[in-house]
């Protein structure tokens, strides 16, 4: 394969993947929604879960995006320094989004700031967003693709606490955000929390946390304990599906953390809505793609 052919092949695979994510929720989200829905017995939450399931089935059978807000595309890339297309990656991801926008079709969700016009191609200055992690001595490339809808982006918030506020302060910060904004972000939510030093370190971690599978745990014992405490605490509020009341509020709480400055605790929260459209794919050096979030797609065909 020439370089040009390789770039085209990977672009096509990513375009197909993005379009698929818009129409089909990942396996872990489907399973969790089923689990939560099955435990509701009041009429209202039951009917809501039934409608949500019906919608996801119709989206597949009619081949349409399941939610009209297909979000702004964000890619989290963990790229090996020896991956053959490392130099082309950012440009080809942009091209893949344009392709998917017309093929799927996706809503036009890229408005240039200051000039304030919609590019009508779903890409613009800095969109899709590409976050880079470089992996030394590897020849493969891992990509998380995420559709950040408007409703579930709104609750995002970061701030820096004084250490005196402690983890109790983190608890307040996260829970307060759930009853003010989380409510309208289409629960049950997946909640991502970042704990670090400053606003940007915490904020990035809070989004990264949303890429983790539902039901996974932070490897630090205390952090994992806090994930569970927050999950149970937010569930006890009983936001229910669509924030209209029910037995649960969230699909899970994922915390990502780093060390911090002794004088600060940076904390951030980000949420994914019930329609949590994220996918994970790994390309090897020959561009064979392995998807582990969606058993419903094979990008190599």
């Amino acid at each position: 394969m020439t370089r040009e052919e390789s770039v085209k092949l990977m672009t096509d695979k990513m375009a197909k993947f993005v379009a698929h994510i818009a129409k089909k929720l990942p396996d872990d989200v489907v399973a969790k929604l089923e689990e939560l829905g099955a435990q509701e017995n009041a009429a209202l939450p039951k009917v809501l879960y039934e409608t949500m399931t019906k919608n996801q089935n119709l989206a597949v059978s009619l081949d349409r995006p399941s939610c009209q807000d297909t979000g702004v595309l964000q890619f989290w890339v963990k790229c090996g320094t020896k991956f053959p297309l490392i130099d082309d990656l950012e440009a080809l991801l942009k091209e893949a989004v344009v392709q998917a926008t017309f093929a799927a079709p996706l809503r036009h969700n890229s408005v240039e700031t200051f000039d304030e016009y919609n590019t009508k191609r779903n890409v613009g200055k800095g969109t899709p967003t590409v976050f880079w992690d470089i992996v030394p001595n590897s020849d493969q490339c891992e990509i998380y693709a995420y559709m950040a809808g408007g409703g579930c982006t709104l609750p995002g918030k970061a701030m820096v606490l004084m250490p005196g506020a402690g983890y109790e302060g983190i608890t307040d910060f996260v829970l307060d955000q759930m009853t003010s904004y989380g409510l309208n972000a289409c629960p049950p939510l997946l909640v991502g929390v970042g704990v670090a030093t400053s606003v940007e370190t915490a904020a990035l971690l809070s989004k990264k946390a949303l890429m983790r599978p539902i039901g996974s745990h932070n490897e630090n014992e205390n952090a994992a304990k806090m994930e569970k405490l927050l999950e149970d605490g937010i569930n006890a509020i009983g936001l229910g599906p669509q924030g209209m009341g029910g037995k649960f509020s969230v699909m899970g709480v994922n915390i990502e953390n780093t060390a911090r400055h002794p004088s600060t605790i940076g904390v951030a929260v980000n949420v994914g809505c019930w329609s949590h459209r994220r996918g994970h794919v790994v390309f090897d050096k020959d561009l064979n793609a392995t998807v582990d979030t969606h058993s419903t797609v094979d990008l190599n065909q």
Binding site: E168, L175, L229, L230, G238
Partner: peptide
């Protein structure tokens, strides 16, 4: 109103468990 009441109760239950400092 109900959500806020439940939230306060949830916070009180979490505080004693997260005294990591």
């Amino acid at each position: 109103v109900i959500f806020n009441e439940r939230k306060e109760a949830a916070k009180q239950a979490i505080y004693p468990e997260v005294k990591f400092i």
